[in-house]
Amino acid sequence: MLSLERLFPGHSLLWLTFFAGVLAAWSALFAMQASFELPAGWQELGPGYLLSLCAGSIADAGFPSAVLMWSLMSLAMMAPTAFPAFKTYSDLAHTDAASGRSLAALISGYLLVWLGFSFVAALLQIRLTEFGLLNTLGQSTSEILSGGLLIVAALYQFSSLKNACLSACQNPMTFFFSHWQPGNLGALKLGLRLGAVCLGCCWALMLLAFVAGTMNLAFMGLAMVLMTLEKLPQIGAKLSAPLGVFLFIAGSTVVALPLMPNLF
């Protein structure tokens, strides 16, 4: 706790809660893995319920369960990517521009946006599963769908909207100064705006979960690292375009491979 206080003076309890929440989300996602076996007698406890979400089709589990799963994914994957922005806002407390409560309001606003995304993504997953385009692990069964999502994500990497949102994420101090609103309500609105910017930056990459599988921890970890690095100014400037090229090649390959036998 003392080390945390030195790193985050004045807000150590809030940051402890933040990191504990992210760790809890990752732990829950791990417990939900289909191959994860619980000790005897734990079936009626919380982890047993989490595991049951992946026992069958997400369409059978229901919309609330799908929202819970996507909410955990959003917290586990997206909260760490916004940590530099949260830390920048936290540092403003030393200038009396922000407080612990306003920081909590900022983070809450950010997470509310991703909760909204979780509702949309859950609904989309259920519909795609009902049409037979996703299997029980939330992974695409269609080359067209997989390739299409990869190509859309690739093209979006080069769009003006992506560049604008990414620029805001890479320069949080400029973002806060440009849109500053005082007080806890102002911080909440600022968090909503930050969440919207982050959503504009990362939604296409998040939907690639339908290609790798929504319960694929390796994809979640890799995507979190890539999106975090992309938001770092010096690294992101060198990463965004190559990532787009890679995704386009991957998407084109996925679409083209099934057609190759018909060409010969």
Rank of each mutant, 00 (worst) to 15 (best):
K162D: 05
A59V: 10
L194C: 06
P84S: 02
V225I: 15
S35H: 13
E143T: 10
T141K: 12
A98Q: 07
V211Y: 01
L226S: 03
I58F: 07
V225C: 14
N171C: 00
M260L: 13
P47V: 09
H11E: 06
L68E: 06
M73G: 03
I144W: 15
F175P: 02
Y89V: 12
L133S: 09
D91C: 10
D60V: 15
L72K: 01
H11D: 07
A250W: 02
S90Q: 13
A164E: 09
L111I: 13
M215L: 13
L192Q: 06
S27M: 06
L68K: 02
L217E: 11
T81W: 03
L13D: 13
C198P: 03
F219A: 06
L137S: 12
T253I: 08
A31K: 08
L161V: 14
G109Q: 01
S178T: 05
A121N: 06
A98G: 09
A218H: 13
M227I: 14
S90D: 15
L188W: 15
G48N: 14
S74Q: 04
L51Q: 13
L106G: 15
M173W: 07
A153C: 02
G116C: 01
T95R: 13
W42R: 10
M206S: 12
I58E: 00
M78F: 02
L16K: 07
V245P: 05
L134I: 11
F131A: 12
A28K: 08
S178G: 07
M215C: 07
G56R: 15
A59K: 11
L14H: 06
M215T: 15
L38P: 00
C169D: 03
F210V: 06
I249G: 07
L205V: 12
G186L: 09
G10Y: 00
L188T: 14
A153P: 00
L145Q: 06
A223K: 11
S167H: 15
A105H: 08
I126C: 00
G183P: 06
V245W: 11
A55I: 08
G48Q: 13
A20M: 01
V113R: 03
L2M: 04
D96P: 05
F86R: 02
E5F: 05
D96M: 13
F177C: 04
A122S: 10
L155E: 03
Y49P: 04
L123S: 08
T95W: 14
P172L: 03
G148M: 07
G100R: 02
L137K: 14
L23A: 12
A105Y: 09
S52Q: 11
A79Y: 01
P84G: 04
T253S: 11
C201G: 08
A24P: 04
L7C: 08
A223R: 11
I144E: 03
G236F: 07
L207C: 10
M1H: 11
G191D: 12
A24S: 11
F248E: 02
P39A: 01
P261K: 09
L72Y: 01
L29M: 02
S57G: 13
C54F: 00
G109R: 08
F117H: 04
G56L: 09
L199D: 10
N184C: 13
Q139D: 00
S57I: 11
G100S: 13
M69P: 02
G236K: 03
A85M: 05
W26Q: 01
L123M: 06
P258L: 06
A76Q: 02
G41C: 10
G236L: 11
A25G: 04
A93M: 15
H94D: 10
G148N: 05
A212T: 00
S102N: 08
P9S: 06
G56D: 14
